[in-house]
Amino acid sequence: MRKIIWAKHGENAFDNILKYIIENSGSINASKVYDEIIGKIELLKSERVTTRKSQELLEIGINDVFEINVKPWKIYYKILNNNKLISIQYILDTRRNIEEVLLNLVIENKI
């Protein structure tokens, strides 16, 4: 069983998503999104979960970041410590310009 940890910028991105939803759709919707995203992240604890490298990041030479979808969000994570640790790097709303946001994260050394 893998352990889940959060990179600071991943945690901040998730907090910002939830705050935005609370402000625009209410706390009940934010709670549903929280449960959905955390539920998907919890699945990553199993080593049997199929992983997929991020195509957008592969295109710019980053090959150690994986993604999992919870529409309309993507959860970006790294697999560390001989497949025993999952580090949540970032959560991104895919309605934004994904390539631009990811490039800025790479430039800022946040992913």
Rank of each mutant, 00 (worst) to 15 (best):
V106Y: 13
L43V: 04
I91P: 02
N69W: 04
R52S: 12
L43K: 15
L103K: 14
G39D: 02
L43A: 06
R96K: 11
Q55F: 13
T51Y: 06
R95E: 12
I5R: 11
G39T: 02
K8E: 14
N16I: 01
K74S: 14
N109P: 03
I79R: 03
K40E: 15
N104V: 06
I107Y: 12
L44A: 02
S27C: 00
T94G: 00
I28P: 00
L85N: 06
G26H: 14
I5D: 10
E23I: 07
E67W: 03
E108T: 12
W6C: 02
I88F: 07
L85K: 10
A30N: 04
L57M: 05
Q55T: 12
K32S: 11
K110C: 04
S31I: 01
I5T: 12
I28Y: 11
A30M: 03
K3R: 15
D93W: 05
R95F: 11
Y77R: 01
R48S: 08
I37V: 14
K84V: 09
N24F: 09
K3V: 11
D93H: 05
V65G: 06
E56H: 13
N63C: 06
R52M: 10
F66Q: 01
N97L: 03
I88W: 06
F66N: 08
Y20C: 10
G26Y: 09
E108K: 15
I37Q: 10
Q89K: 13
N12K: 10
V33Q: 06
A30L: 02
S46G: 07
L85D: 02
Y90D: 11
V101A: 03
K3W: 13
I86M: 03
L18W: 04
K71Y: 15
G39V: 01
P72D: 07
N109W: 06
I98C: 01
S87D: 10
I37F: 07
N29K: 09
K74L: 09
I107L: 12
E42G: 00
M1D: 15
I79Q: 05
A7Q: 15
I37K: 09
E67S: 08
V70P: 08
E67D: 07
I5G: 04
R2G: 13
I5N: 10
L58H: 04
K8N: 11
I60G: 13
K19I: 14
E23M: 04
I107E: 11
K40Q: 14
G26R: 06
I22N: 01
I75T: 03
L80T: 01
